[in-house]
């Protein structure tokens, strides 16, 4: 302040405290107020305008504030939704990882074994009727994971001790994933060696009067001198345009160890009878934990079809993996051998 150049604010305050309250003569006060127009009052019309504009401004401000709150609320909601989504996705991934744990846990072991067994003789993509060569270690869950666990259940496990011993349900769950079935269907299919659903669809392409034929295919696997403990094959069955597959059976192999019908998804029958010309992929797998295992070229499964109408179904096989008792992939060749067909008299069907 200009009026206190030689004093500090504290000096000024303490000096003022000692002074009496300052006062002006009334006429000086009046003169001051007249000079500064203190007596003038605003007209009512001005008040009305000012107040109206003030309230209008406040209304706009409130609206803006509400909009901001809405935006902030929406942003927070979005954030919460994102966090929940990420959390759920994380849990799903954790479940997936947990479900795939047996295979993933075995991955380093597989890699080591593959390195020991040398290069595989055929690429995994080879998939004609006769495919030769063992598949390289396939990605994801395979029948080998179920086989390993089943070996543990049998008490002949080779997995290091200290791991949790799984129960048979866990084996079934893995097998069901391998053949793309659910556990209940898998178990019910395993009770028999196949199933029959021999009611043909009434379609223009398939004559009702056409005879029913039975066609069977042997799935053969050649492992050379190595014993076969587990295998996983992918079949592709294509019904001709002029015929319809009306029945489907799956039977086991020729060797006692593999006589039980392989695991497969029995719901494929519905797809097969959907319409002529249908093409169906059938994952197929089997294993045996016993000591007596087949060696060389042998039948590991048989597919039996009942067909109505002219034309011949086509069946191809692709080897996913074959493994010996050590549960490591071995070289193998898969082929499909058609056994010919036989006409079934209608009165013999039942």
């Amino acid at each position: 302040m200009n009026d206190s150049t030689n004093t500090t604010p504290n000096d000024e305050a303490s000096r003022g405290d000692a002074l009496p309250d300052p006062a002006l003569p009334v006429r000086a006060v009046i003169a001051l107020r007249e000079a500064y127009g203190a007596n003038r009052d605003l007209p009512a019309s001005t008040d009305a305008v000012v107040l109206r504009q003030l309230f209008e401004r406040r209304r706009r401000e409130d609206a803006r504030r509400r909009t901001m709150w809405s935006l902030q609320f929406a942003a927070v909601l979005g954030l919460v939704a994102t966090v929940v989504y990420i959390g759920n996705r994380g849990r799903d991934e954790a479940r997936t990882i947990a479900a795939a744990t047996p295979a993933d846990r075995a991955a380093p072991e597989r890699a080591a074994t593959l390195a020991e067994s040398g290069p595989m003789s055929a690429p995994r993509s080879a998939s004609r009727v006769e495919t030769f060569g063992a598949a390289a270690q396939p990605a994801g869950v395979t029948i080998l994971d179920a086989y390993r666990l089943a070996r543990k259940v049998d008490g002949k496990g080779f997995i290091s001790s200290g791991e949790r011993v799984p129960d048979a349900t866990e084996v079934d769950e893995i097998v069901a994933r391998v053949v793309e079935s659910d556990v209940d269907s898998l178990r019910s299919a395993a009770e028999g060696d196949g199933f029959l659903d021999a009611r043909p669809e009434s379609r223009a392409e398939v004559s009702r009067s056409a005879p029913t034929r039975v066609v069977s295919y042997d799935i053969k696997l050649d492992t050379g001198s190595r014993a076969l403990a587990a295998f996983q094959i992918e079949l592709e069955l294509s019904a001709p345009d002029t015929a319809q597959v009306t029945g489907f059976w799956m039977r086991g192999g020729s060797h006692p160890a593999l006589q039980r019908a392989p695991f497969f998804n029995k719901s494929i029958a519905k797809q097969l009878k959907a319409k002529p010309g249908t093409r169906v992929r059938i994952p197929l797998a089997n294993f045996d934990t016993g000591e007596d295992l087949p060696v060389g070229d042998q039948q590991v499964a048989r597919v039996v079809l009942s067909v109505v109408g002219a034309g011949h179904p086509g069946l191809t096989a692709r080897l996913v993996v074959a493994a010996g008792p050590e549960a490591v992939p071995i070289p193998a060749a898969v082929r499909v051998v058609e056994r010919g067909d036989a006409e079934v008299k209608k009165d013999e069907k039942k």
Binding site: M1, D3, P9, E12, A13, S14, R15, G16, D17, A18, L19, D21, P22, L24, A28
Partner: peptide
């Protein structure tokens, strides 16, 4: 935002000038 003493001091000076 100043002390009352400062107000009094400044008022006294202003009144003295007038």
């Amino acid at each position: 935002g100043i002390p009352v003493g400062t107000v009094k001091s400044r008022l006294h000076q202003a009144i003295a000038t007038l």
